[in-house]
Computed example of a mutant assay.
Amino acid sequence: MKCGVIGLGDMGSGLAKNLLKAGFETWGFDLEPTRLAAFRDLGGQSAQGVGEVGAACDAVFVMVMNGDQARAVILSDDGLLPQMKPGGVIILSATVKPFEARAIGADLVESGVHIIDAPVSGGFPGAQSGTLTMMAAAPHDVLDQFAPVMEAVSANIHRVGNCSGDGQTVKACLQSLIGAQFSATFEAAALAAKAGVSGQVILDVFSTSSAGCGVVNNALEKIIDRRFEGTGSSIHTMHKDLTISMGLGEELGVPLHTAAAAMQIFHAGRTKYPDGDNWVCTRVIEEIIGAELHRDGAK
């Protein structure tokens, strides 16, 4: 089975690396020449365009930023669908709005090409290490057929539904929770800084308490080491994901008070520090209170 990856950024490069590691011949395309060069250095087959990947591959991951990009990559005249053979599969691993995934799935029904709606969680570390959690939605026979491909990039594959859009719905619920965890961590870090507590103390206590988890611990590590850029977790991605969560809440009439507060914190962080990663939101709060949380003590 030949595999492809469209989008070779922080997440897609990890997918490609682990597909190659699992022994799959892997094709890739990205608009950034430097990313294509890095992919070739890993042993991948770089393509001149999206259609070339579709023509060469049986299974293609789409890891782009938003629904408009996903739709163009999959359905445009020079996209995947016109070139892929019947029986192949498009794995929509990007996070998009549920209705966008449903619409793309509907456009594939008569094509003979399958779609697996499979957004992921685990961020840059999970993508690079092949330990992502995948929320996969497709008929069971399709999931069975392409399980080896998904297992190459994911440690946990959850079958969350049969239809395109089901995976994105679960991801929207998850991101509403993760956004709230992030925001509470940023505020707690700022509170500790103003109170004069050291970052190491906060990390030691939080990580061994009932509040400790991967989201909280990782965020605190980045904050107390003042690593606000270049960590593979662009603030734009989480802001987009929270927008999707809020949109689903509006569509279904579900109040999301905590997610809404989280979105505003991320909105402030993105506006002030557009090149930052998620944790940079803490800096916005620190600037208001005039204190910073460092590993060796508040300043």
Rank of each mutant, 00 (worst) to 15 (best):
M1T: 13
K2I: 06
K2T: 15
C3I: 07
G4F: 08
V5Y: 04
V5G: 07
G12L: 07
G12C: 14
G12I: 12
L15V: 13
A22V: 10
T26S: 14
T26P: 08
G28S: 12
F29E: 09
F29A: 13
D30G: 09
P33F: 07
R35I: 05
A37P: 06
A37L: 12
A38T: 03
D41W: 01
L42E: 15
A47H: 06
Q48D: 13
Q48F: 00
V53E: 03
G54R: 13
G54P: 14
A56W: 01
A59C: 11
V60M: 02
V60N: 06
V60H: 02
F61V: 13
V62L: 02
M63V: 14
S76I: 05
S76D: 15
D77Q: 15
D78E: 15
D78T: 15
G79N: 10
Q83V: 09
K85E: 09
G87V: 15
G88Q: 05
G88L: 11
G88V: 14
V89L: 06
V89T: 11
L92E: 15
A94K: 00
K97D: 03
L108H: 04
E110C: 03
S111Y: 05
H114T: 06
H114V: 08
I115E: 03
I116K: 06
A118P: 04
V120K: 09
S121C: 05
P125G: 07
P125A: 06
G126K: 12
G130I: 14
T133Y: 00
M134W: 03
M134N: 10
M135I: 01
M135Y: 05
A136G: 12
A137K: 05
A137C: 03
P139C: 03
D141G: 02
V142Q: 13
D144K: 11
M150T: 06
M150H: 01
A152N: 12
H158Q: 08
H158P: 01
V160L: 03
G165L: 09
G167M: 07
V170D: 08
K171Y: 01
A172G: 06
L174W: 00
G179T: 07
A184S: 13
T185W: 09
S198R: 08
G199R: 12
Q200K: 14
V201L: 12
L203D: 10
F206A: 14
F206I: 13
S209N: 08
C213I: 00
N218E: 11
A219G: 00
A219L: 08
E221T: 08
R227D: 11
R227K: 14
G230Q: 07
G230F: 02
T231C: 05
T237P: 00
T237C: 03
K240A: 10
K240N: 02
D241A: 13
D241I: 13
I244G: 04
S245K: 01
S245T: 11
G247L: 10
G247Q: 13
G247R: 10
G247I: 09
L248P: 02
V254E: 12
T258K: 00
A259N: 12
A262F: 06
M263Y: 11
I265E: 10
F266H: 07
G276R: 09
G276Y: 03
N278M: 02
W279H: 01
W279M: 08
V280K: 11
C281D: 02
C281W: 01
R283D: 02
R283H: 05
I285R: 07
E286A: 09
I288L: 11
E292W: 04
H294R: 14
G297P: 11
G297F: 08
A298N: 05
